[in-house]
Simulated scan of single mutants.
Amino acid sequence: MKDSIIKYCVEKKGATEDYPFGPDPLVFKIAGKMFALLSEEKGDYSSLTLKCDPVIAESLREQHEAVLPGYHMNKEHWNTILMNGSLPVSDVFDMIDHSYDMVVKNLPKRLRESILGTN
């Protein structure tokens, strides 16, 4: 699943990979703003931290044992997903989309338009 998550994140328009905190986690950004953090444990990626609307974040935590408040992040706006195989990859991709969209919508209009190619 790790490779498909990395591929999915970097294929987002304007997305970049970075290691701003050292060798772990792998951070995905749009216009310098984080939208995903993929953390490694014992050589395998074990969790994915994503930005989330606070109401949706709480709902996801109630519905899925693998969705927890964001590790080392603002727990109101970030969720950490344990990559234990309990969530379908399509659900994880939906959460990545939501995180990316949350960050993009808060970018200045001109920057957002230049990234997305809209006017």
Score class of each variant (00 low, 15 high):
residue 34 M to T: 05
residue 34 M to R: 07
residue 34 M to W: 06
residue 36 A to K: 11
residue 36 A to S: 08
residue 36 A to V: 14
residue 36 A to N: 06
residue 36 A to C: 15
residue 37 L to K: 03
residue 37 L to F: 02
residue 37 L to V: 02
residue 38 L to Q: 05
residue 38 L to D: 09
residue 38 L to G: 04
residue 38 L to A: 06
residue 38 L to P: 11
residue 39 S to T: 10
residue 40 E to L: 08
residue 40 E to I: 09
residue 41 E to I: 12
residue 41 E to Y: 13
residue 42 K to W: 13
residue 43 G to H: 07
residue 44 D to A: 15
residue 44 D to M: 12
residue 46 S to D: 11
residue 46 S to N: 07
residue 47 S to I: 11
residue 47 S to T: 13
residue 47 S to W: 11
residue 48 L to T: 03
residue 48 L to R: 03
residue 49 T to G: 05
residue 50 L to A: 09
residue 52 C to K: 09
residue 53 D to R: 01
residue 54 P to Q: 01
residue 54 P to F: 02
residue 54 P to M: 08
residue 55 V to H: 08
residue 55 V to F: 01
residue 56 I to P: 04
residue 56 I to M: 02
residue 56 I to Q: 12
residue 56 I to G: 12
residue 58 E to P: 12
residue 59 S to K: 03
residue 59 S to D: 14
residue 59 S to Q: 07
residue 61 R to L: 06
residue 61 R to K: 12
residue 62 E to V: 00
residue 62 E to H: 00
residue 62 E to F: 11
residue 64 H to P: 08
residue 64 H to N: 05
residue 64 H to L: 05
residue 64 H to K: 14
residue 65 E to V: 14
residue 65 E to T: 13
residue 66 A to T: 14
residue 67 V to R: 05
residue 67 V to F: 00
residue 68 L to E: 15
residue 68 L to M: 10
residue 70 G to I: 07
residue 70 G to C: 00
residue 71 Y to D: 00
residue 71 Y to I: 07
residue 72 H to P: 10
residue 72 H to L: 02
residue 72 H to Q: 02
residue 72 H to I: 02
residue 72 H to A: 06
residue 73 M to R: 00
residue 73 M to Y: 00
residue 73 M to L: 06
residue 73 M to W: 05
residue 73 M to V: 04
residue 77 H to R: 06
residue 78 W to G: 11
residue 80 T to D: 06
residue 80 T to H: 15
residue 80 T to L: 12
residue 81 I to H: 03
residue 81 I to A: 04
residue 81 I to D: 03
residue 81 I to E: 03
residue 81 I to N: 05
residue 82 L to Q: 09
residue 83 M to A: 01
residue 83 M to I: 01
residue 85 G to P: 04
residue 86 S to T: 15
residue 89 V to R: 06
residue 89 V to C: 02
residue 89 V to Y: 08
residue 90 S to C: 09
residue 90 S to R: 09
residue 90 S to G: 04
residue 91 D to M: 14
residue 91 D to E: 12
residue 93 F to V: 10
residue 93 F to P: 00
residue 93 F to W: 08
residue 94 D to K: 01
residue 94 D to G: 09
residue 96 I to H: 07
residue 96 I to G: 09
residue 97 D to E: 15
residue 97 D to G: 13
